[in-house]
């Protein structure tokens, strides 16, 4: 089994040893469904690395996905995990978080799921500054259904529903999230594994609506239809064309076909979360009559 000329000692077959990520994943479901060179697995690895770094109590972390390639993440991560309907992970996560505010609730889904069918939920959760950690894998295309155009598909890019090139301006998701009020907004690519891990570690402990966009290769569909080469070629493209600009004005970070990709942490602010604002406002207006206020105060006194 081991490739020629390599000492047996440094090569392990799948049966004999397990990857250190195993305790974090549902290994009985491996191999996953993602294509060769797809970046979703790398994004999952970065999330796990952030858990390790923070020594997160994983019993108190829930993950919610929608539908699509990235929607499958919930099924592979060994957390309380919810694979919901198309576009709906954010409202599902909203209910989950508000029913038990001790939980850290991660939404891990794709660009089509979160910004097309789920776009309305996305903007409103950001507006409310709902305490959700939203990770959006953006590969500019609908993968699961066979390569159709997404709201993120750059102008002129070819997809199976824009065979002559896309003629619709796309969303800049970071700009959208920032404009709606997100507490934290960052963009990285699948190549920036360390910075991505750091961003995930930051959002896991930051209250409010936190948004990380992960630009990933889709070699099966996006790269093939646009003749961009292999997944590795796309990673090289990220290497050569990424401009890291922390604090960049989100409006100036549009992604243009064949252009540079501006990455970095664009927004990091501290608006009160939805629940914090409720507790503060209702506590002020209702005083002793505000039940959650009494409970919270009681917890403080103890």
């Amino acid at each position: 089994m081991s490739p020629k000329g390599v000492p047996e000692a440094v090569i392990a077959a799948v049966s004999s040893e397990e990857h250190p990520i195993a305790p974090f994943l549902r290994m009985d479901r491996m191999p996953h469904i993602w294509c060769s060179t797809c970046g979703i697995g790398t994004a999952v690895k970065a999330l796990v690395a952030a858990f390790e770094k923070l020594e997160t109590d994983l019993d108190k972390v829930s993950i919610v996905s929608g539908i699509g390639c990235t929607g499958r993440v919930a099924g592979y991560v060994r957390l309380d995990s919810f694979h919901t309907t198309h576009g709906r992970p954010i409202p599902f996560a909203t209910g989950l978080k508000l029913a038990n505010s001790e939980l850290t609730v991660i939404v891990f889904s794709g660009d089509g799921d979160l910004s097309a069918i789920g776009g309305n939920h996305f903007i409103h959760a950001a507006r409310r500054n709902m305490d959700l950690k939203v990770i959006c894998v953006n590969n500019f295309i609908y993968g699961m259904t066979g390569g159709q155009a997404a709201p993120t598909t750059p102008l002129t890019a070819v997809t199976s529903t824009t065979p002559y090139g896309n003629a619709e301006p796309p969303f800049n998701l970071c700009h959208l999230a920032a404009a709606c009020g997100a507490n934290y907004v960052a963009r990285w690519t699948a190549l920036h594994v360390r910075r991505l891990t750091k961003a995930f570690a930051e959002i896991l402990v930051k209250p409010g609506f936190c948004f990380v966009e992960v630009i990933t290769p889709c070699s099966t569909l996006y790269a093939r239809k646009n003749r961009l080469g292999t997944g590795l070629d796309i990673m090289k493209y990220y290497h050569d064309n990424t401009v890291i600009e922390h604090g960049a004005e989100p409006a100036d970070t549009d992604i243009v076909f064949g252009g540079p990709i501006i990455c970095g942490k664009f927004v990091d602010r501290d608006r009160p979360t939805w629940l914090e604002y409720q507790d503060q406002h209702l506590g002020e207006v209702l005083g002793d009559k505000y039940y959650r206020g009494k409970v919270l105060q009681g917890a403080g006194e103890r």
Partner: peptide, 13 residues
């Protein structure tokens, strides 16, 4: 849509 989905999420919470 968000309303029904949120109550399902809350039930799981």
């Amino acid at each position: 849509i968000a309303s029904i989905t949120a109550i399902i999420g809350a039930a799981w919470g």
